[in-house]
Design a binder for these strands. Structure first.
Lengths: 257, 257
DNA sequence: CGTGACATTGACTAGTATCAACCAAAGTGG
DNA sequence: CCACTTTGGTTGATACTAGTCAATGTCACG
């Protein structure tokens, strides 16, 4: 291994040598440059990371990784939405989460993928060989720290999803989802509700939604219809939902007051 | 910040000074010495970590942290079992996981606890002020790496639990739980089934089990009774279960073959 | 032996799944 | 350009799993 010198903090001559390589340019116009992992590095250091990356694109519906397959790569998403899922042998499927720009796939320290990932729309990623990325981590502890932040945040989301799946009713699940998606995509200040009439663009089919919420598509459809009937939302199109009364949705989502 | 020297690998004079302090002795006979976080450090370095710790014990049922309260501490469990849970305002509760010797609480990088933790039996922990532990992390990157491993493993478990909560039937949930608990507590070689007649000791009440599996206590009870009736398990006592046919349980748990 | 906490079992109900019909939008091909 | 098909979504009728309510059982403890 390369040893850290005790002299001035210039970390790796290597990074400097690559500063003007074509790879560096790739990052400049990348949608994920200031998101997720990449955001933890300086332009200079990023070139070092970029050296280990291969750009790759996936079509809508194309599998990125398959549960149970040998875990050969890590992925960092540059653009697009990805769904993560686990399935039972008889085909029942649970979507465990969604990943988009700046998110990181393949965290699990296992030799097999523990879940599947599929592009939900045209998606570009940076793909890393596991050994080479591990080597990069050795050099940049900031990356590992960032990864820890990401993982703990995912864990918090997972716990909330467990509460939803284990204890909420169908309509509560749908209301919770709508607000969470608004918080994720839209711009509602951290911890606050989206403003009335916020327009959501869902890249999800009803099937995805059902598999995420632990319901059937029929129940999802009925729940959405009921929310519309009761004036909480409008459904201008299959993939568009307007939150007419976020406050009311929040009330349903938490079953409180 | 302190700079790493390039000379011999003696890391911090501080640690050496404390090597014979009373705290060091505490770790020697700690059940968690070679588990979780502590396992990532040498005896010498551990004294440094121990300096930041306060030992504390909790009675069965006593809350260790409360969802929504200010997140003041991290905890490392030395002995005992702890349940982690989230609740809805109307009282519905979801247990998101269990923690025992060597497990770490308070990972979330939030100023409020995102879940509650309660001792399920007499439990001892090392408690750390968040700022002081953060400082320790700065000095020992091995700890952060270990924490990342822990967090990603938790994430894998969480995903499996989501699949269980969202898609499995009551009896599948119970069968899955029994096998998972056997793998956790007992000694079935990684990825294998426990041997027939493995005796489980559950420190859980039926209520805990129900809140973990997203069911009611009645349904848990009925499912266990059915598994017993069908010869898969025996129930010698409230907190004891014998796995008569682990293979059969696995079959039910995955709904396959 | 009585009391209380916890677990089991039974009868009934409610919420969601299943099955099926219908609908709308987007291709597709003559 | 317009039937025809395909795909995905909605709505309705019915079934079934798990929840609710209630009675009974078991065990530990005073």
């Amino acid at each position: 291994m390369v040893h850290v010198t005790n002299a001035p903090p210039a970390r790796r001559p290597l990074a400097i040598n690559l500063a003007n390589s074509p790879r560096a340019a790739q990052c400049d116009d990348c949608g994920a440059r200031h998101a997720g992992l990449c955001d933890a590095l300086s332009d200079e250091d990023l070139t070092f990371l970029a050296r280990a990356a291969q750009r790759r694109t996936y079509q809508a519906g194309e599998p990125i990784m398959q549960e149970g397959d040998k875990a050969a790569y890590f992925f960092n998403i540059n653009s697009g939405h990805v769904r993560l899922s686990k399935s039972l042998p008889d085909g029942r499927r649970q979507i465990t989460g969604f990943a988009s720009t700046g998110h990181f796939l393949g965290l699990a320290k296992s030799d097999k993928n523990v879940c599947s990932a599929e592009a939900m729309e045209p998606t570009t990623v940076c793909r890393f060989n596991r050994p080479s990325l591990m080597a990069v981590f050795e050099e940049f502890p900031a990356l590992e720290r960032k990864l820890l932040d990401v993982a703990t945040h995912e864990l918090v989301l997972a716990q909330e999803q467990m509460l939803l799946l284990g204890r909420k009713t169908a309509i509560e699940r749908v209301a919770t989802f709508l607000l969470a998606w608004a918080a994720r995509e839209d711009l509602c200040p951290a911890g606050h509700l989206p403003k009335p009439n916020a327009a959501l663009q869902l890249p999800l089919s009803r099937t995805d939604l059902a598999d995420y919420l632990g319901l059937t598509i029929e129940t999802v459809s009925r729940s959405l219809s009921q929310l519309k009937r009761d004036g909480f939302i409008d459904i201008p199109g299959i993939h568009g939902i307007t939150l007419l009364k976020p406050q009311g949705l929040a009330h349903i989502a938490e079953a409180e007051l």
